[in-house]
Amino acid sequence: MAHIEEKPFLFRLKREWPAYLYLLPMLVVLLLLTIYPISLTFYYSLTFNGPLPAPGIPPNTYVGLRNYNIIGTSDLPLTETLIMNSFFWATASIVIFIAVGLGLAAILNQPLRGKTVYRTLLLFPWAMPAFITILTWSNMLNFNFGIINAILGLFSIPPVQWTTGGFWAVWGGLLLMNTWLSFPYYMVVFLAAMQSIPKDLYESAEIDGASILYRFTHITVPYIGSTVGFVALMGWLFTFNNFYPIYLVTAGGPGNLTSIFVVRVFQEAFERSHYSLAATYTVIDFIIMLFVAIPAIKYTRLSEGWFK
């Protein structure tokens, strides 16, 4: 029998070399602009760089885990605050997004006059660049001159210190703004998922005498559950490190009340030149992200779309 195993391999290579060419840009980007800088960040977290309180140590010296010790001991309250704030920020945002998104999607998924008009108008906040609208919100939330406090005044509600007040005032303002920024996306995605549910499922349930609530919990939820889960996970991971809303409105303040990792890192690096410290916080943040993302992706089958 003719054995030509080598030949087809070469043939394959000859035929499929574009495959590797197609992957090349991505590999270059991954190597030079992702893997290398990430390694650099790990390395910086092990060096002394920038005006840390460390008299006598020249810049770029390898200092082992010194930076981790600093933030783990003297700086402990801040590290803890960053972790808690980031978790709170991401979790609270996602819960609201999903509630609002599902609610509006459910309303729009019924026969209703003018629903395409509503849908188009409701998509506007998503279509506007976030950088511009966040700056606008920042002004609208101003304590003295902001329009939000003026509107509250209409209902005889005293002005709220949105950027300088207590926990609920400041987080409340940020979450309100973040909801405005994000709910259209969730609404549209959930609506599309709901529209993909076969109508006859509802019809047969209706014939069987199932109530609206029962239909929602037994048909809608199981059908769009994986979409909601996947979008929630992605949204959580994104919000955990969403820089602009907090940086542009409160810059982590007042004090450290709304300080999250990504904002703190930027400030340490580019406002105080504490590069090593910034790198150390980055590594901690990255590790937290991996701890959440990898098991979620691996064990929940949420990522099937990535593999086919």
């Binding site: 991954l30 602009l33 930027f266 590069y275």
Partner: peptide, 23 residues
């Protein structure tokens, strides 16, 4: 490989600014 990319994606993009800056 795809898992690896997904893991890398978890590195906050904003924070790449620091190593980029030095590079």
């Amino acid at each position: 490989f795809i898992y690896f990319i997904i893991a890398l994606m978890q590195f906050p993009g904003t924070m790449l600014v620091i190593p980029y800056f030095f590079m």
